[in-house]
């Protein structure tokens, strides 16, 4: 765990495709930070406008105050992507050479790709690009791991675990447990903790 923020405000972007549990992941991570006494601002877009579209949550972490719910261009410190091309999409606007990126490797094809109108880049190309445009890039098979656990939606919790596993943020597994125990039915707690731990392990093994 990091002792404190490396920057104020520290800027986190969680991105993915509508339906991947992006909003839930951002709430969980933000509540963990609120528990540590930080001032948090989350900016989100959701609703009908996001059906099948890219979804982004901007999380600002500060010791002092609220910040804009939209992060300015080029100001992301860490990007957590539930889908690989959305990691690239976010970095194009919000990235910089110091930005860290964690990405789930499972592709969700845009309809334009399915229809043959657009091209989806190959996995090697994605890895090369993300490594090239970030300070450090981690690649995780979070959806596959979630499927092994029995539910693909757990991919978002695996990614939260991985984010905590990087030791960049001043939060721990206990903070996760506390937040999840407050917001989830008891019977789901254990599975979420397992998913979280799998995420941490995936980072520690890299």
């Amino acid at each position: 765990m990091a002792k404190q923020l490396t920057k104020d405000p520290f800027n986190i972007i969680i991105t993915g495709v509508g339906g991947q549990g992006n909003v839930m992941a951002s709430r969980v991570l933000a509540n963990m930070l609120v528990g540590k006494g930080y001032q948090i601002t989350i900016g989100e877009t959701f609703g009908a406008s996001q059906r099948g579209g890219s979804v982004m949550s901007h999380i600002r972490v500060s010791e002092k105050s609220s910040w804009s719910p939209q992060i300015p261009r080029g100001q992301a410190d860490i990007v957590v992507a539930l889908e690989p091309i959305d990691a690239i999409r976010v970095l194009i606007t919000y990235g910089n050479p110091h930005c860290l990126v964690l990405t789930n490797t499972r592709a969700i094809y845009p309809v334009g790709v399915i229809a043959g109108e657009l091209n989806y880049p190959g996995q090697d190309e994605i890895r090369k690009t993300l490594t090239d445009i970030s300070a450090k890039a981690w690649f995780l098979d979070a959806t596959e791991e979630a499927l092994r656990l029995g539910n693909p939606i757990l991919g978002n919790i695996i990614m939260i675990g991985a984010t905590v596993g990087t030791d960049v943020l001043p939060v721990t597994r206990d903070d996760f447990k506390e937040v999840i125990a407050r917001s989830m039915p008891k019977d789901k707690l254990e599975m979420n903790l397992i998913a979280f731990d799998r995420g941490v392990e995936k980072i520690k093994c890299q």
């Binding site: 059906r51 690239i88 970095l91 334009g112």
Partner: peptide
């Protein structure tokens, strides 16, 4: 380095029914 990636590496997600 990043701006040209919009076209080559980040195909747009058009809105669609679930």
């Amino acid at each position: 380095k990043t701006q040209p990636l919009t076209f080559s590496m980040a195909p747009n997600r058009e809105l669609t029914f679930c």
